[in-house]
Design a protein around this nucleic acid. Structure first.
Lengths: 233, 233
DNA sequence: CCGATAATTTCGGATAAGCGAAATCACTTC
DNA sequence: GAAGTGATTTCGCTTATCCGAAATTATCGG
C-alpha cells in the first residue's frame, strides 16, 4: 500500500457523478442512517440489483475515495462520499417539497418523480425552488432537508412500533419509499404533525391500537415501523 | 414559408427511449425543420459527437423503425420517430416556459436546464406544468409547443437576415441554442413580440440597420439569422 | 470518363453499468 | 477445530454509447 495523500477533502465533491453513483451513495447513507452496515446484500436489495453488480461498483467507488470498503465487511462513506450523498438528498427532498406544494403532485407520487429529477436538476435550480418554498427544513414526508453546506438533522426517532404505551407523541416522518404504504398512512391521517398515543400492542407482531388525533385505529407492525414519533415538545 | 399545423398519426412511441436517442431524434427533427437533410455530419456537429458515432446510432435507430436511412444519403424521421421527437420537444418547451415564468430562471439559461430535465420529467408532471401555465402555445423564445397529441405549428418564418427592406414585422422567435447570443438579443430588445423594420443592409454580410421598437440598431448577419419575423397581422 | 476531395461508413477499442455462475470467505455449530 | 451455510467476490459476458483511424463511396471539375 502506497501512502496515498489522504487529505480530508473540502466540501466540494469534485466532478459531476453519474446517476447510478448518486443512487449508490444515497442508498449507503440511508442504510448507515438506519444504524445498519451497508453490506453488499443490503445494497443490492435496496437498489434492486444483483449482488455481483454491487460488488463491482463498491470497489470502484472505494478507489475513487467516495467510500471505505473492507472486502466481505461492508462499505462506509468517506467525508467526500457523505457530502455527495447529502447533496443528492437535498435535491431529492427539495424536489419532493416543490412538486407536492407548488405543483400539487400527490404525496405518494412525489418520491418516484423526484428520484428521476434529482439527477438532472442544476444546483441553482434547486436553490431557486428552495427559495420559492421559503427554504423548508422538512420535506412532505417529514424528512429533514440538508442545507447547501451539508448540514442536516440526523436525529433518529423511535418508530410507532416501539413507541411506549400511553405516551402521547407527534408523527415526525413517514417512510416515502412505498407509494401504496404512503396512501394507506394518508388515509389513516398518519402524516407528519399528527398526534398519536399507543393504547395496546398485541403480541407476536399483532395489530397495534393507536389513537390518531381523535380516532382509534388499528395498524400492523410493518406500517407502524414506517412511522417515526417524537415526544410533544 | 410553408403553412399551418400538422397532425401526427397516433402511433405508440414504444418503450421509454434513452436520453441520447431522444437527443438524436430531436436534432433530426430540428434539421429537417430547417429544410436541410439530416446528414451524418450535420448531426455530428449539432450533437457535438464524432461522425463515426452518429453513423452507428443512425443505423440502430433505423432498424428500430424510428427513422429511414439510406447510407450516404441522410436520415428522415418515420411517423414513430417524429412522434417521439415531438414528445421530447414538448417536454423541452414546457420546461423552458415553466422555468422562465414561474421560477424566474434567466431566459438564456432555461435551454440548458431544460435539456437535462426533459429526459427525466414524467408525462404527467409536464402536463401539470403546462396546466399551471395555462397550456401555453409558445415557449419564452417564441418556439411553438407541440400538444400532447403531437400537433404543432410548423410555419417557417423568414429570418431578419432575409426580411424585406422597409416592411414592418414582428419578431416571432429567436434561436435558443446559444446563451451568449440570447443575452445579446435581449439587450437589443429583440424578443418575441418586438416590432422591427429593416432600413438597410450592407453588402457582403455587412451590418444590418434595423428599427427595434423605437430604437435604431445595427446587428450582424449571424445574429440576424437567429431572429425570425412575420408580417404584422 | 477519371480522378481528387469530402463525406460517410467500417473497424477495433474504450468505458460504464449490469448479469449469472462459480469460486471464495466468514461465521456458526457441532 | 472442522464443516456447512450463507454472504461476498471473481470471472466471463452483454448492452449502450462513444472515439480515432482506415476504408469506402459520392460527387464535382475537367
Amino acid at each position: 500500500m502506497t501512502a496515498a495523500p489522504r487529505r480530508t477533502p473540502a466540501i466540494t465533491p469534485a466532478p459531476s457523478l453519474t446517476a447510478p453513483v448518486e443512487d449508490y451513495l444515497k442508498a449507503i447513507y440511508d442504510i448507515q442512517q438506519g444504524g445498519e452496515a451497508a453490506t453488499t446484500n443490503a445494497l443490492a436489495e435496496r437498489l434492486a440489483l444483483a449482488p455481483a453488480s454491487v460488488s463491482g461498483m463498491v470497489r470502484r467507488l472505494a478507489t475513487q475515495g467516495l467510500l471505505d470498503h473492507e472486502p466481505y465487511r461492508g462499505a462506509r462513506l468517506t467525508p467526500a462520499g457523505r457530502a455527495a450523498a447529502l447533496r443528492t438528498l437535498r435535491r431529492h427532498r427539495i424536489l419532493e417539497s416543490y412538486l407536492a406544494t407548488v405543483l400539487g403532485v400527490p404525496w405518494d407520487d412525489v418520491h418516484a418523480e423526484a428520484e428521476q429529477l434529482e439527477h438532472a436538476a442544476s444546483d441553482t435550480l434547486i436553490d431557486r425552488m428552495a427559495r420559492a418554498l421559503g427554504d423548508p427544513l422538512f420535506d412532505p414526508h417529514g424528512a429533514p432537508i440538508p442545507t447547501r453546506d451539508g448540514v442536516v438533522d440526523e436525529t433518529r426517532h423511535t418508530t410507532l412500533a416501539d413507541w411506549p404505551l400511553g405516551t402521547r407523541g407527534t408523527v415526525m416522518s413517514v417512510s416515502d419509499k412505498d407509494p401504496v404504504m404512503l396512501r394507506y398512512l394518508g388515509e389513516l391521517e398518519l402524516r407528519p404533525g399528527a398526534m398519536v398515543q399507543v393504547h395496546a400492542r398485541a403480541p407476536y407482531d399483532g395489530p397495534i391500537d393507536v389513537m390518531v388525533g381523535a380516532e382509534l385505529r388499528q395498524i400492523g407492525p410493518t406500517a407502524a415501523r414506517a412511522v417515526r414519533i417524537a415526544s410533544i415538545a
